[in-house]
């Protein structure tokens, strides 16, 4: 009985917080937009019966997504931005995680604190403050102008560069923490053994440290890539009109066009795209757990 209960709880959780909402969104994506409240048809009614209701659902909205190139361009652009920022986050996060794992024992708790500290402030406020830093009259330009490094203010805000800065800044803890965990576990005598057997420091890093932190790297990359793909706040606030991301398109369909069915179709496709990396991520985690036990 206990075991059944333990197994049932996560499934109930999944049902209530993922499958039911997803079914609702899926249903809306199969409806038609209408001047109504809520703004789509058909509405389910008991008099007409479920047969008549189901008969009115169709895949029109999904077909529509393929007719307007805005959508596939937005998906592609999101994938590209997510991939690039994941790579950037990895390139910046790995050395930080490495330095943390190598730092003297008594410093590590403090360093860990510093990585987590930004979560104590609202995400929105932190992204807004980047507007203050990156804008033409922002702190960064003032500093660089003041130092005489540049003579004209740089245009960063409302470009892709600002989006990358925002994403790397926001998601870097998700990259650092799993890599740090992997490097922290790494026995330093393995590096010494590699050196003893003829490796230079750099070679030992490539042949031992990197492969042994592989699971941390993979976990970190997924933890950054998955939320970045549907990211909406950062491209809206920092990316300006030139940055095309599917999260932004989705928001505009819902709130500007009030086209819930198309917006839902966009969301359904996004979820389907995300399922691939999520499944891969799960497999990686499982492999890691097996390797540890």
């Amino acid at each position: 009985m206990r075991r059944v209960f333990i197994i049932i709880v996560p499934y109930l959780w999944l049902l209530a917080l993922f499958l039911i909402p997803f079914a609702i969104v899926l249903k809306i994506s199969l409806s038609d937009v209408a001047m109504a409240r809520p703004p789509y048809l058909p509405q389910f009614s008991w008099e007409a019966g479920p047969g008549a209701f189901l008969a009115q659902l169709d895949f029109e909205n999904f077909t529509f997504l393929t007719t307007d190139d805005l959508y596939w361009k937005a998906y592609l652009s999101s994938l590209q931005i997510a991939a690039t920022s994941t790579l950037l986050t990895l390139l910046i996060g790995y050395p930080i995680a490495y330095a943390m794992a190598r730092a003297p024992e008594e410093w590590r708790a403090t360093l860990m604190m510093l990585v987590i500290l930004p979560f104590w402030t609202s995400f929105l406020i932190r992204v807004y403050s980047w507007m203050g830093i990156l804008s033409q009259e922002g702190y960064l330009n003032q500093l660089l102008l003041g130092l005489g490094v540049i003579s004209e203010p740089l245009i960063i805000l409302n470009t892709k560069a600002a989006v990358y800065i925002g994403i790397v800044y926001t998601y870097i803890p998700f990259m650092i923490l799993p890599i740090y965990a992997a490097l922290h576990r790494l026995d330093s005598s393995l590096i010494e053994a590699a050196e003893d057997l003829g490796c230079s420091r750099a070679k030992a890093f490539w042949l031992i440290t990197v492969p042994l932190s592989r699971n941390g790297i993979i976990a970190g990359c997924f933890l950054v890539f998955i939320p970045t793909l549907g990211e909406f706040v950062i491209p809206s606030l920092l990316g300006g009109s030139g940055t095309l991301m599917i999260g932004k398109v989705l928001w505009e369909e819902f709130f500007n066009n009030r086209d819930w069915p198309v917006a839902s179709a966009v969301a359904v496709v996004l979820v389907l795209i995300l399922i691939i990396p999520i499944v891969l991520f799960q497999q990686n985690q499982q492999k890691q757990n097996e390797a540890q036990s």
């Binding site: 026995d187 005598s189 393995l190 010494e192 053994a193 590699a194 003893d196 057997l197 031992i208 492969p211 042994l212 592989r214």
Partner: peptide
């Protein structure tokens, strides 16, 4: 060459 106390075999 050294044989380490913990063996230090490369797990991968």
């Amino acid at each position: 060459n050294m044989m380490f106390q913990s063996y230090a075999l490369f797990p991968h």
